[in-house]
Every structure is written in structure tokens, then in C-alpha cells.
Design a protein around this nucleic acid. Structure first.
Length: 419
DNA sequence: TCTGGGGTCCTAGGACCC
DNA sequence: TCTGGGGTCCTAGGACCC
């Protein structure tokens, strides 16, 4: 059997651990720029507020005080997430941290009769030690455990165990196909067109029909619904991500090259810092720009590009250099951009490597890696990004709430980023 | 008129997740 | 007026190989 432990309304629950006045009231947490709703309390859900709903659509509710809207505090959520996952691990030896607020629990070898008790123990520990409510569903596969958790949340029960075929079919009959793990907006529409409305409708179709219409993933979901566990996630602590990215939507449309250049340098530096944090090196750097996708009359544009570095590196200077070079290639004058980002790909573990024969940075590699260590250490002790590339600094003429805007102008405009 | 077949690798884009 | 961010995986199509 597999368990799924899922925190309820996670971001809102985190805020409530700090401020008990929020308990029992309609609360939402907003995204960057206070743009849209990314978490809702049960009370807010009952008012009809949707996930991802733009904040301006509910401003009557927030202004009148009927709904409390908070800007996100992601450092807090990260911290609480670590503690919650620690509790899961205390009760279950083998767990997979699936997201900031969810973990799969491997219950192999544990008698079904004991699952409910273990679930209650985890629930009580999370509630009393951290103040976060969780819901836990147990079932023969990951997909089914998701369904059990979903159903428990609807019925306000903390723990559910799927033991019989009757229970399995009854849960599948009661949930719309859109709530199946792996089925998003697009597939939902396609499945509606094929006459499939509930998860049970889907499970009753022929496996070969599913395979031909939805490919390998659809077939896996179908098998999981029939009790065959076949979606594997990695048990072992995964050392490295496949990619790292940093991107932001701006509060206003931007055509100021200098401002964009500074943003790209900042995102590149932050990506490099994340990369060093997970002890990795990368070889591919990418940059993307986006115009406002809601301004359809002017045409949506999304230029992007990437380049391959000479050797694997985690050096902020090299990565930022590359990102700025890409920016110059894809930048379009007179176009108003609403969003920009940097990503790193082709990531490997940081082990001694053979430098490229043609690597111009080779000689400096050692001193740079020491420099990066020193920079990370100083920023860690003294505060957020006191040491940065000159190219990360711009005149703070664009209001921003992400903690980066500088209030002073750059005294000069170097062509290459250097500490 | 008419133009092979099978394989690998890479990339861009789509779809999904929370 | 105002619409998030960071990920993963799959697939289709192109380039290339023999």
C-alpha cells in the first residue's frame, strides 16, 4: 500500500501558525506582485474564490474585509515544509517528498489494519508540534491514494484507507475526470468529447483505447486505477535537479534595455547560487523574454535562446556573461516585455572535471570557485545579496516587491559583469 | 507519375504537476 | 488598470547515420 500525506491549504495554514486571528476566517495568499490567488482557506473556497484567480477580481471582497489577502512568505513555507516532511519520515521509513506540501509514504509490508493508526499518529504530530493540518490517504497505488486524500478532504476526514473494490469504484464514481492525477485542462476537454466524465468512466474504458488516445502516461494512470502500482518516483534522495530557473512577471510592461539587463543578471546570479547550493555544475544557459499574454491585440512574442558553455561551471560571472550575451541576441527594441527569466540545463554533480582545451576561464577556475564560496558565505552571514555583480544594479525606478530593487543608481555601466 | 528503411539523437513545444 | 513561479516528462519532427 501507498500513502499520500497532503497538507491542507498549505500556505494559508503556515500563515495561521504565526497569526491565530486568521483561523476560521476567509484567507487567501497571493502570488508575486500580488497578482493572483495561490492558496485559499476553506472559508475562502466556500466564497467561490478559485485557484489562480486574478486578485483584482476579488478586490471588493478584500477591500471590505470579507476576505484577508496576504502576500506570500515563501521562506516561512519552505521552513515549515522541512519540519512537516521530518514528521512523515519519523513514522514511515521510506517517503518521497513530492512537493512542498505533499509526500508519498511507502507502506510496503505493513498490515492494512495498522494504516489508520499510523495515519492518525502523523496527523496528531503535525497538528500539535507544527500546527499544520494534514490529510492522509492509503491505497494500492499512488494515483488511488491521491483520490482517497481528495475524497477525505471533501468529507473533512483526516485519514482514509481504501481496502475493497467497492470502495475503489465508489470513490472513482464520485470524482470528475478532471481530478485524476495527470489530467489537466486539455485532456479533460478531450475526454469529455469521448463521453468520459467521471474517473470511473475512464477506468471502464478499454486499456488499449486509453493507450492509443493518451499514450504511455494515460495507460499508466489506467493501470494505477485498477490497483497496479506503476508510477515510480525516486525513493533515493535525488541529488540534482534536471534544471534550475528564475523568472518574474513585472508589475508593468518594460522596454527599458538597461532594466532588463539588470534583471537578467540578477536571475542568472540567483540561478548560479541555487546551483552551488545543490553542489552542481551546468553547461547550458538559457534566457527567455515574454510580452503580456493578455494583450492579444499587439501579438504575443516569446523570444528565447540558449547557449552551451565550454565547460561545466557554477561560476556567477561565467553564467551571467552567457545570459547577457543571449539577451543581446534575442532582445527586440520597441517591444514591451512583461516577463523575463533565466534557466540552467545540463546539470551534473560538482566533481573534479577535465577542463576544455580551449577554456579561457580555465586558469581562473580555482580562484573563482573560492571566490564564489566566499560570496555565498558573506551573503549568508551579512544578509540578502549584499555582494553582487555590478550588472545586477539598476536605478530603482520600477516599483517591485521582490526585494531586489536598488534605491541607488549604478555609478558606471560595465560591459562585463565582475564582482 | 514515379524518389528506401530503420535507427539515434537533439530540440522545441505541449501538457501536466503543485 | 489589474492575470505567478518552478519544475518534470513526453512527443513530434528534423538532422544525421548507415
Amino acid at each position: 500500500m501507498t500513502g499520500l500525506a497532503d497538507c491542507n491549504n498549505f500556505f494559508v495554514s503556515c500563515e495561521r501558525t504565526l497569526n491565530s486571528n486568521l483561523i476560521g476566517r476567509p484567507v487567501v495568499v497571493l502570488s508575486n506582485n500580488d497578482g493572483c490567488v495561490v492558496a485559499r482557506s476553506n472559508e475562502a473556497k466556500r466564497l467561490g474564490i478559485r485557484m489562480g484567480q486574478p486578485a483584482f477580481e476579488i478586490k471588493d471582497l478584500t477591500r471590505s474585509g470579507q476576505v484577508i489577502a496576504l502576500s506570500g512568505n515563501h521562506l516561512l513555507y519552505r521552513e515549515i515544509s522541512l519540519r512537516v516532511h521530518d514528521v512523515f519520515r519519523r513514522y514511515v521509513p521510506q517517503t518521497i517528498d513530492y512537493s512542498i506540501d505533499e509526500a508519498f509514504l511507502d507502506m510496503t509490508g505493513i498490515p492494512v489494519g495498522e494504516l489508520y493508526g499510523i495515519g492518525m499518529a502523523i496527523y496528531n504530530a503535525c497538528q500539535s508540534e507544527i500546527g499544520i493540518p494534514v490529510t492522509i490517504g492509503f491505497a494500492p497505488s499512488k494515483t488511488l491514494s491521491k483520490l482517497v486524500t481528495e475524497r477525505c478532504k471533501k468529507q473533512c476526514e483526516p485519514i482514509g484507507v481504501m481496502e475493497t473494490d467497492d470502495q475503489r469504484w465508489s470513490i472513482m464514481e464520485g470524482l470528475p475526470i478532471s481530478e485524476l492525477w495527470g489530467v489537466g485542462r486539455r485532456l479533460t476537454r478531450r475526454l469529455y468529447e469521448a463521453g468520459i466524465y467521471t474517473i470511473a468512466d475512464f477506468a471502464r474504458r478499454d486499456k488499449s483505447w486509453v493507450r492509443s488516445r493518451l499514450g504511455i502516461n494515460g495507460e499508466k494512470s489506467w493501470l494505477e486505477l485498477h490497483g497496479y502500482s506503476c508510477i515510480e518516483l525516486e525513493h533515493v534522495e535525488r541529488q540534482l535537479q534536471d534544471s534550475i530557473s528564475e523568472s518574474r512577471t513585472f508589475p508593468i510592461d518594460i522596454d527599458d534595455y538597461d532594466y532588463l539587463r539588470a534583471r537578467i543578471a540578477i536571475y542568472a546570479a540567483d540561478c548560479a547560487k541555487k546551483l552551488r547550493g545543490m553542489r552542481g555544475l551546468c553547461k547550458e544557459v538559457g534566457v527567455m523574454l515574454r510580452t503580456n499574454r493578455f494583450h492579444t491585440e499587439s501579438g504575443y512574442q516569446a523570444p528565447q535562446g540558449s547557449l552551451s558553455l565550454m565547460t561545466y561551471t557554477s561560476d556567477t560571472n561565467i553564467i551571467a556573461d552567457a545570459a547577457l550575451a543571449i539577451l543581446d541576441k534575442i532582445w527586440m527594441p520597441d517591444v514591451m516585455f512583461k516577463r523575463a527569466g533565466v534557466w540552467l540545463n545540463d546539470i551534473i554533480a560538482d566533481v573534479p572535471s577535465t577542463p576544455s582545451l580551449f577554456e579561457e576561464y580555465e586558469v581562473r577556475e580555482h580562484e573563482h570557485s573560492r571566490l564564489m564560496q566566499a560570496v555565498d558565505k558573506i551573503n549568508g552571514v551579512v544578509g540578502h545579496n549584499v555582494l553582487k555583480l555590478a550588472s545586477q544594479i539598476t536605478k530603482g525606478h520600477v516599483g517591485h516587491n521582490d526585494g531586489y530593487s536598488s534605491s541607488f543608481g549604478a555609478p558606471f555601466n560595465p560591459t562585463t559583469p565582475k564582482f
